Simulated scan of single mutants.
Amino acid sequence: MLSRRKADFIMVIAVLFWALSYVLTRYGLTDLEVFNFMAIRMALGFLIAALLCYQTFLKINKETILAGSVLGALLFLTLIGTNYGLTMTSISNTVFLISMTAIFVPLFSTIIYKKLPERKIIVGTIGAAIGILLLTVTGIAGLGIGDALCIIAAAVYAVHIMIAKKFVSSEKIDALNLGIVQLGFAALYAGICSFLFETPSFPESPDVWFAIFFLAIFSIAFGCVAQVVVQKYTSASHVGLIFALEPIFGAIFAYFAYGEILLPLQILGGAFVFFSVIWIEWDWNDFRSKKRKTKEK
């Protein structure tokens, strides 16, 4: 059993690994085609996660497999937009635009459930939206195909987050197994597309193999599974807002790996994003309660 705060902390670590994955994916795509690269890393991530959690995985049921096929499809579509986007635009642009997931989740939730989220989530979302706008508008000279694909990927992943929350609320579906199964289906879909549209091969460079294994272990086996599991203990809106940290982490990694530099307004945007997440994660009721107790003393 996880507390909401611990669940959110795990999501922050997952987002950190996902931000790093953009740099490694860009490197891996210099040696392999998109579907080929996706199939290998997702298959490895699936095998690693299944082996590490084999006792739980052996108890998998029909409902979890069906749910995993749906989440796997959404994850696969997200990766298509992200990976093709990376081949057409900068790492900074990609990670900034993918972080629009933080805006799409509460927006879609409001439309579907016809219910406004709590006030601090609204404030945090507006702050994150301003930050992402500053991050992107100063760094993009006209949206290209790659940028559009990244925005679509962000919207699809927002749907993934919301549907994952619905699935893990069911008593028949084990969250850990669901997180693992989606990886297997994403690998299957990518493998089929690779055989249909590409010439599948294995990487020849040890550096590319390192990138693939790192991605498989940390961003896939840990990150993707963790996101599904923690959604039992936190809201889809919280998960969406934590995604707003991704452009900050991604910009730092892009700078050190490829020398991509942020403009002053982009740095301001990053500050908006960061403090919006802090705002949403801070327990204001607990803070006010402690403040009142201090005054009474």
Rank of each mutant, 00 (worst) to 15 (best):
Gly146Tyr: 12
Arg5Ile: 12
Leu32Val: 11
Val181Tyr: 06
Leu97Glu: 00
Thr25Lys: 01
Ile60Phe: 05
Thr56Asp: 15
Ala244Asn: 01
Ile121Cys: 07
Phe210Glu: 03
Lys232Asn: 03
Ile278Phe: 14
Phe274Trp: 07
Gly81Arg: 07
Tyr255Val: 09
Ser237Tyr: 02
Ala236Met: 11
Ala257Gly: 00
Gly81Asn: 10
Asp286Tyr: 11
Ala154Lys: 10
Ile130Cys: 10
Arg26Val: 09
Ser99Pro: 08
Leu52Phe: 07
Gly223Pro: 02
Gly240Ser: 04
Ser92His: 09
Phe185Val: 00
Val181His: 06
Leu74Thr: 00
Ser237Ala: 14
Trp209Glu: 05
Val95Glu: 01
Ala129Tyr: 10
Tyr255Lys: 13
Ala148Met: 12
Glu118Pro: 10
Leu77Ala: 15
Gln182Phe: 03
Phe57Tyr: 13
Phe243Thr: 10
Leu77Phe: 15
Lys291Thr: 08
Ile13His: 04
Ala154Pro: 04
Met162His: 10
Val230Pro: 04
Ile80Lys: 04
Asn285Met: 10
Ile173Gln: 03
Val181Lys: 09
Cys53Ser: 14
Trp282Ile: 13
Ile152Ala: 09
Val123Leu: 14
Ile111Phe: 09
Thr30Lys: 15
Lys114Ala: 12
Thr82Arg: 01
Leu2Met: 12
Ala102Ile: 07
Ala154Phe: 01
Asp286Trp: 10
Gly146Pro: 11
Gly72Trp: 00
Gly127Asn: 05
Ala236Arg: 06
Cys193Thr: 01
Pro203His: 12
Pro117Ser: 13
Phe167Cys: 00
Ser21Cys: 07
Met100Pro: 01
Glu281Phe: 06
Asn83Tyr: 06
Leu75Pro: 06
Ala7Lys: 02
Arg4Leu: 05
Asn285Ile: 05
Leu71Asp: 09
Ile278Arg: 11
Gly127Pro: 04
Glu118Leu: 10
Leu107Gly: 03
